[in-house]
Simulated assay, not measured.
Amino acid sequence: MTVSRRLVNLTLDTLEDLPGRCRGCVFWELDPVAADRAARAGDAELSKEAWASQTLLEWGSCGKLIYVDEAPAGYVLFAPPAYVPRSVAFPTSPVSPDAVLLMAAYVVPDFAGGGLGRMLVQGVARDLTRRGIKAIEAFGRERPAAVADRTAEHGAESPGERRCVVPADFFRSVGFKTVRPHARFPRLRMDLRTALSWKSDVEAALDKLLGSMRPEALLHPALPH
C-alpha cells in the first residue's frame, strides 16, 4: 500500500490542523508577559491566529505542515525575528540580520522516525532560497543530561522551553551549525548561500515526495478538520 505524504504552506485554514497543544500555544508569537496573559485569559488560539494572519499578510509564508495519508503529521513555523517577540529573550540572541528564525518544529509521535522532520526543514530551505533569504537560524535546547549540573547556575527549564524549543541535536542532524554556543540554548545556523548540497537534497526529497503520492491525493487535497 502506497503511503502519501503532502507538504503544504501554513494558512489560516491549515492552522486548524496543528496539534492541539501547539494550536493554543503562543510561546514564540508573543513576549513572555503577553503570552502569560493570553493563556490566563483563554485567548491563546485567537492570538496565534492573529499572529499568523499578520505575518502572512505582511511577510508571506511562515509555516509548513506535512500530511501522511491525509492525517496531519507535523509542522514547522518560521519568520523574521521582528515577528518573533520571544526571540530576544534567549541568552544567545539576537538572530543575525540576514537570517529568518525557525521557531517551532514538531512531528506527531505516531509518525516519528520517518524522516518527516528533515523533509519539513528541507521544504523551508527551498522556500526561503527562492525568496532570496540567505540563512536560517534557530535556538536549540541542549539535552537535559548535558545541562543537569548547570541547573543551579541557570535555573530550571520552564514548561514552555521544554515543549517549544527544539532539541539542538535535531538541528545539527539536518545541517545546522552552532554559531553561538551556550550550555542550554545555543543558536544554530544553516547558511543557504554556501549549503549548495541542500538545493539538490531538497529537490530530490520533494521529487521523491511527489512521486510517492497517489493521484487522488493530488486531485483531492485534505479538507480542514
Rank of each mutant, 00 (worst) to 15 (best):
T2C: 01
T2V: 11
S4V: 07
S4R: 07
R6S: 14
L7V: 07
N9R: 11
T11Q: 14
T14S: 14
L15D: 03
G24Y: 03
V33C: 05
D36P: 02
R37K: 14
R40I: 08
D43N: 13
D43P: 04
D43F: 06
E45P: 06
A50Y: 04
A50I: 01
A50K: 11
S53V: 12
T55S: 14
L56W: 13
L57R: 15
E58R: 11
S61W: 07
G63S: 13
K64C: 06
L65W: 11
L65Y: 08
I66P: 05
A71Q: 15
P72N: 09
G74H: 13
Y75A: 13
A79N: 11
P80Q: 12
P80T: 12
V84R: 10
V84N: 07
P85F: 02
P85D: 04
S93T: 00
P94Y: 08
V95S: 06
A104G: 10
V107S: 05
V107F: 04
V108Q: 11
L116M: 07
G117T: 03
Q122D: 10
V124Y: 07
A125Q: 03
T129F: 03
R131N: 11
A135I: 02
A135W: 00
A135V: 04
I136F: 04
E137M: 02
G140M: 04
E142P: 06
R143I: 08
P144L: 12
V147G: 00
T151W: 00
E153V: 06
G155A: 08
E157N: 10
R162L: 12
R163Y: 02
V165L: 02
V165D: 02
V174L: 06
G175N: 00
G175R: 00
G175C: 07
F176R: 04
K177Y: 10
K177L: 12
R180P: 01
R180H: 12
F185Y: 14
F185P: 06
P186Y: 15
L188I: 12
R189V: 00
L192R: 00
A195L: 04
S197E: 12
W198S: 00
W198P: 05
K199V: 01
K199N: 08
D201V: 09
D201R: 11
V202L: 05
V202N: 03
A204S: 15
A205M: 09
L206C: 12
L206W: 09
K208M: 08
K208S: 14
G211H: 03
M213H: 02
P215D: 05
E216G: 05
L218Y: 11
H220R: 08
P221H: 10
P221K: 09
A222N: 10
L223Q: 08
